[in-house]
Write a protein that binds this DNA or RNA. Structure first.
Lengths: 160, 160
DNA sequence: ACAGATGGTTTGTGTAGCACCAACTATTTA
DNA sequence: TAAATAGTTGGTGCTACACAAACCATCTGT
């Protein structure tokens, strides 16, 4: 306060991201429930829409979720016919996961239904700002290291 | 694909927020552990820094966390001397929670230590973009409805 | 052709974060 | 003085995971 010259603020987004994500999730749950979806289903569908079809392993990498749990997640989505598992032609061990048309539509519907939740959480931002926020989040998401396990190796160099 | 004219995309940020928050959290955990902190501690400290001191109840509202769990969270932070509970003078039932100087410093250190994690997760964004992202998140966070319980009442008007 | 690695599935088991309930104290308000 | 409120404690239960083991189908290297 005393005319601090060394007021160096770190400006890390992590905590804020989590803070807002939680708020959004709490509101989303009740909106999504009638659609038979849960927040994490939405995340998976979104990833699939952004990145296109991919193997289950790649999806697990992108969601940074254990492979065995991805199985269950996809079982949900597949029985709801929002997602399709095809055998990969060039490696028949692999399952290629892709959004069905129904899934694409449903994802859009769900997002549409979330308007209220977003209005609530992002109330302090005007439409243009929400748009740039969306773009930034979208680009950040797509740019991530598909496989995180290797990224976690870079950790040790945490110095200040 | 067929020259779709009605390609109306909903652009909701919720899923992306959660997606990135998870990535960030997974990386943060290992970085924060040596500091004796967990992601949710960081969130609480951040809220306290942004909004200033507040009652435990208000903090619970802001974090949208059950009151009883906030007690435990604050116990952690208080025994680590990052946070202080003072009796409110004008209502001695209330505890006014505030960051200690040590807590402020520690929060900054932690954020600094998270540089690597953020670099990793936001790799696709250049520094200027990360900065605007931070600003947007920060403003969205501060603008939220301190008490969410009333905000959840506005839910029913979810139409499309 | 065979061995070993790999992608996916199933079935556990464990843990952490959280909501929720009940009971209690200290304090305020009606 | 009675009822409401802020916080605390202790307990229960649920959900989302991680992780391990065992298994099949398939691929790859020798």
């Amino acid at each position: 306060m005393t005319a601090g010259p060394a007021e160096h603020r770190e400006r890390r987004s992590g905590a804020l991201l989590e803070f807002l994500a939680r708020r959004m999730r709490l509101r989303s749950e009740s909106v999504l429930a009638p659609l038979g979806l849960r927040p994490r289903h939405l995340v998976a569908l979104t990833v699939l829409r952004e990145a296109g079809e991919m193997s289950q392993q790649a999806l697990a990498g992108s969601l940074q979720l254990d492979g065995t749990n991805v199985v269950g997640l996809l079982n949900d989505l597949e029985t709801a016919e929002l997602v399709e598992r095809r055998r990969s032609p060039e490696d028949r061990r692999r399952h290629v996961v892709s959004l069905t048309e129904h899934g694409t539509r449903r994802l859009n519907e769900a997002e549409c239904a979330l308007a209220g939740a977003e209005d609530d959480v992002l109330a302090a931002l005007d439409p243009a700002e929400r748009d740039t926020l969306y773009d930034l989040l979208r680009r950040a998401s797509s740019g991530g290291p598909a496989t995180c396990t290797e990224a976690i190796r870079d950790n040790p160099d945490v110095l200040c």
